[in-house]
C-alpha cells in the first residue's frame, strides 16, 4: 500500500466528477428532452389520427347527405316530368277537342251557307220556271215581296 492507492482514489473521484459534469448531466437532460419530444410526437400523431377519423366521418356524412339530396331531386324531377307529360296530354286533348268543334261549327256554317245559296238558286229557278209557264214577265218589283216570302219558306 502506497501513494498510488490514494492517487487512484483521487483520480477516480475527479474523473467521476468530470464525467458527471461533461456527460451524465447533459446526456440525462438531453434524454429527458428527447423522451418528451417523442411523447409529444406520439401524442400529435394520435391527435392527427383522431382528426383524420373525424374528417373521414364528416366526409362520409356529407357524401351520404348529398346522395340523399340527389335522390330527392331526381324523384322530384321525375314527378314533375310526369306532371308535365300529363298536363301536355290534357292540353292536347282539349286543343284537339276545340279544333274538332271549331271544324264542326265551320262545317255547319258552310252547310248553312250552301243551303241558303241553293235555296236562292232554287227560288230563282222556280221563278224562271214560273215565268216560262206564265209567258210573261212578272214584275220583279211587284212580286219581290212574294218572292222573299217564298225564299224564306224554302
Amino acid at each position: 500500500m502506497n501513494l498510488t492507492l490514494f492517487g487512484q482514489l483521487a483520480s477516480f473521484a475527479l474523473f467521476s466528477y468530470l464525467v458527471y459534469r461533461f456527460l451524465w448531466d447533459p446526456i440525462t437532460d438531453m434524454l429527458e428532452e428527447r423522451r418528451k419530444r417523442v411523447a409529444d410526437g406520439l401524442a400529435a400523431a394520435e391527435r392527427g389520427q383522431r382528426e383524420r377519423e373525424l374528417a373521414e366521418k364528416h366526409a362520409r356524412d356529407v357524401l351520404h347527405g348529398a346522395k340523399e339530396q340527389a335522390n330527392e331531386i331526381i324523384a322530384n324531377a321525375q314527378r314533375r316530368a310526369d306532371e308535365i307529360v300529363e298536363g301536355a296530354k290534357d292540353d292536347a286533348r282539349i286543343e284537339g277537342e276545340r279544333i274538332v268543334s271549331a271544324a264542326r261549327s265551320e262545317i255547319e256554317q258552310q252547310m248553312n251557307l250552301a243551303r241558303e245559296g241553293l235555296r236562292r238558286e232554287v227560288v230563282a229557278l222556280a221563278i224562271e220556271g214560273a215565268e216560262h209557264v206564265l209567258k210573261r214577265k212578272i214584275d220583279a218589283k211587284t212580286n219581290n215581296e212574294a218572292l222573299e216570302k217564298l225564299a224564306a219558306q224554302l
Binding site: F15, V19, F22, I27, M30
Partner: peptide
Amino acid sequence: LGGAIVYAGYRVGRNLSI
C-alpha cells in the same frame, strides 16, 4: 485513459444532438 474518457465526454457532451 481517464483523460481520454473525459475528453471524449467533453467533446460529446458539448454538442449533443437530440
